[in-house]
């Protein structure tokens, strides 16, 4: 009796020991270190450095001066407005064109495999390569686009040289390159719609247009919100395509915040460049958070 309690007492202490989880927390460690050091730390540091005049070696605190400059300089304001326009135009077009292409590709149309590949392939191609190619194609006098238009007696515009048009031309190329992704997202959304809905609608005598408007469109809302969110964030952050095609020009006509950040960095205005980063961050937070909330709330009502 007493022997068994004696033998039991060390075991009793063992009871207290917490058994290790089979899902060890240290699995987070490598990712956490890399992510924290190279992403989180700079992000938080940017909040401070955006308030300084900064040479990388030393920084002088100047309060909100960098931000004030952002709101004062016309070319910086222009960049801000351009960024929003660019994001809105590209995501809007990707939604419309992507949905139409997806509807087409999920119908009984011939050559679906070919169409799908052709539309999707540009997604995988180097953005800079695409940008350079279209810069050549969009040349006002020697570009293939305007030369082709001229065959029909149309005088093509200066796609990238007209200050009022340059940003939209780049946006158009962005849509050309990115619409394939929107399309496949919509295709995934469309094939997930149960066929019953269409059958029920057919029994109710719906026309194809009513089908689209009352069945397809509401039921692929999750895909729509994905496409909008994804391409809107992407649009706000775009740098490479703009840099490859116009470098923000002509003048500052097609500058966006991302290109301003780069230009200020190149010019050595590190504090101002970092302020640009913070502005972009705030812009994304201000626009994307309400946007996703709006899109998701609507979804909940369905």
């Amino acid at each position: 009796m007493s022997a068994s309690t004696m033998a039991g007492s060390p075991n009793r202490a063992e009871t207290r020991a917490i058994k290790r989880s089979p899902y060890p927390g240290w699995f987070f460690t490598p990712a956490a270190i890399i992510y924290s050091v190279l992403f989180l730390v700079p992000t938080f540091a940017s909040l401070y450095f955006s308030l300084t005049r900064w040479t990388l070696f030393d920084s002088e605190f100047i309060g909100l001066e960098n931000f004030a400059q952002f709101l004062r300089e016309p070319f910086l304001i222009k960049g801000l407005i351009n960024t929003v326009i660019y994001a809105a135009v590209t995501s809007g077009l990707k939604v419309v064109v992507g949905l139409l292409l997806a509807v087409m590709l999920t119908s009984q149309i011939v050559g679906r495999g070919y169409l799908r590949s052709v539309i999707f392939f540009p997604v995988l191609v180097s953005t800079v390569g695409v940008g350079i190619t279209f810069t050549v194609l969009m040349h006002p006098t020697q570009g293939m686009i305007n030369e082709t238009l001229a065959l029909f007696g149309i005088a093509g515009p200066g796609w990238l040289t007209d200050p009022n048009l340059a940003l939209y031309s780049v946006a158009l190329v962005d849509v050309w390159k990115g619409v394939g992704l929107a399309t496949v997202i919509y295709i995934a959304g469309l094939v997930a719609i149960p066929q019953d809905y269409y059958e029920a609608a057919r029994i109710d005598g719906a026309t194809p247009w009513q089908n689209f408007w009352y069945v397809t469109l509401p039921l692929c809302r999750p895909a729509t919100s994905t496409v909008i969110t994804l391409s809107f964030i992407g649009g706000l952050r775009t740098f490479d395509l703009i840099w490859a095609m116009t470098k923000g020009g002509p003048g500052f006509a097609s500058d966006t915040i991302a290109s301003v950040i780069y230009k200020q960095y190149q010019a050595g205005f590190y504090g101002l460049s970092t302020a640009g980063n913070v502005v972009l961050f705030i812009l994304i937070a201000l626009l994307v958070v309400p946007l996703t909330m709006f899109l998701n709330r609507k979804q909940g009502h369905e």
Binding site: F28, F39, P42, A45, F49, L56, I261, N277, I284
Partner: peptide, 23 residues
């Protein structure tokens, strides 16, 4: 963690501070 993951998808990297840190 999930918040940080989503933030990583949205927040643009702060370029110059990253360069400063890498240096």
């Amino acid at each position: 963690i999930e918040f940080l993951v989503l933030a990583g998808l949205m927040v643009p990297p702060a370029v110059v501070p990253t360069i400063w840190l890498l240096q």
